[in-house]
Amino acid sequence: MMVRIRTESFAPLMQLRDEFDRVYKSLFRDGGPLAQARSAEHPSLNIWEEAEALKIEAELPGLKAEDLDLSVLGSELTIQGRVTTAPPEGQTFHRRERPAGEFRRVVRLPVDVQGDKIEATLSHGVLLITLPKAAVVKPQKIKVTAG
């Protein structure tokens, strides 16, 4: 009885919360007007799945391979490094928009991966990380024999 009364009295709050969720999702969904604000973290990432591997791509113009550090711990990938192609301080800047200095981002991986087989390439300022999936999450082909 106690529980039921509490639930009723909280109903308007629940409705408010649902409404908030709805508005939040419409604004912050992929491609929504505020999608970028949701991920204010740098660098921005595109993540997709292929049959054998999870792929993560980031745009890090100016980054050199030796200034990048990738590590996997459990189901988390950490991408960190340093971009050093900024003009030195003390000069007259008419525009200063390029992100410079240290960056760090931790990504929760949506599938299990083989942590020791991760590969990464840097090409024209684009980082592509290939994370081979663990055997259990790969699609298994099941042989059907005619009986």
Partner: peptide, 8 residues
């Protein structure tokens, strides 16, 4: 491509 997450 169907992205799990697409930020840019």
């Amino acid at each position: 491509t169907e992205y799990v997450s697409r930020e840019y």
